[in-house]
């Protein structure tokens, strides 16, 4: 893109978000680098989804600046704000597929709205995206209500990738999937990210995802980022919540083998 020298895809500075008297994010700073997969963790209710929804503009902020793909929502024109939809793709937790459209139409929706494109090419592109996320062409005419949880996520991913976005936001991509499907989904994201070269901002709870696909991990606690860096840096952190989460009983990866 135009901001070629800038190596940061998402830049958040001094962000404050709150509801009523409650302050959820308190002067939060975060950089997401271009082309990396950033895993974002935090306790339930700590404001992970709030941060993601604020970055994509679904929630208002009290103060601070957010720059996404070179655009600052406060200074951007209406036209630029509309155009940003082409530069990011968002995978919502429940998929958020349009229930009245088929799988193919769901994937084509962003193309139809944003591109001048023939129906033939759009059909081919939809099929290509569906195959890239590991679905079969036979699934294209199904409706979202006929899909399993894993397939819903894959279709939602295909729709998020419909316009080859620069940044992909994932809200708990593996929640509701069994560990094997979750692992497959993780490696799918990794493969696609290598092929297409987009930046991934992934909100997750899944330690396996954090270990296997994330380049860097940011931990949110008390409304701030308490540690950000590769897994080794996070494991070295002395923050009590981070310790409990990454070095607690549930961390099978580093747990001793049972006798």
């Amino acid at each position: 893109m135009d901001a070629g020298t800038d190596n940061v895809a998402i830049r958040v500075r001094g962000l404050v978000v709150g509801f009523g008297r409650q302050v959820v994010l308190d002067r939060l700073d975060l950089d997401v680098r271009r082309g990396e997969i950033l895993g974002f963790v935090g306790a339930s209710g700590s404001g992970k989804s709030v941060l993601m929804r604020t970055i994509i503009g679904l929630l208002p902020k009290r103060s601070g600046t957010i720059q996404v793909a070179g655009m600052n929502r406060d200074t951007a024109t209406l036209e630029e704000i509309r155009a940003i939809g082409r530069h990011w793709g968002i995978l919502f937790q429940q998929g958020a597929l349009f229930s009245s459209l088929t799988v193919r139409q769901n994937v084509q929706f962003p193309m139809r709205e944003n591109l001048v494109i023939s129906q033939r090419l759009m059909d081919e592109m939809a099929m290509a995206k569906l195959e890239m996320v590991g679905l079969s062409p036979d699934d294209a005419e199904k409706f979202p209500s006929q899909l399993s949880g894993g397939m819903t996520k894959r279709v939602a991913l295909a729709r998020a990738l419909a316009l080859d976005p620069e940044i992909l936001f994932l809200d708990e991509p593996t929640s509701g999937l069994d560990p094997i499907s979750g692992g497959e989904f993780d490696s799918l994201i990794k493969t696609l990210q290598r092929t297409l070269g987009f930046t991934v901002f992934m909100v997750t709870h899944d330690l396996d995802s954090l270990h296997t696909v994330c380049d860097r991990i940011a931990v949110l606690a008390d409304g701030k980022i308490v540690v950000v860096g590769p897994m080794s840096a996070v494991l070295a952190s002395e923050h009590p919540w981070v310790k409990a989460y990454f070095r607690g009983k549930r961390t099978r990866v580093h747990a001793a083998m049972p006798n």
């Binding site: 290509a128 195959e131 062409p137 005419e141």
Partner: peptide
């Protein structure tokens, strides 16, 4: 290379005709 190799896989099999 990665991207071009990826797309050689797709649209090989037409969807079942309705």
């Amino acid at each position: 290379r990665g991207l071009l190799e990826e797309v050689t896989q797709v649209n090989r099999r037409p969807a079942a005709e309705v």
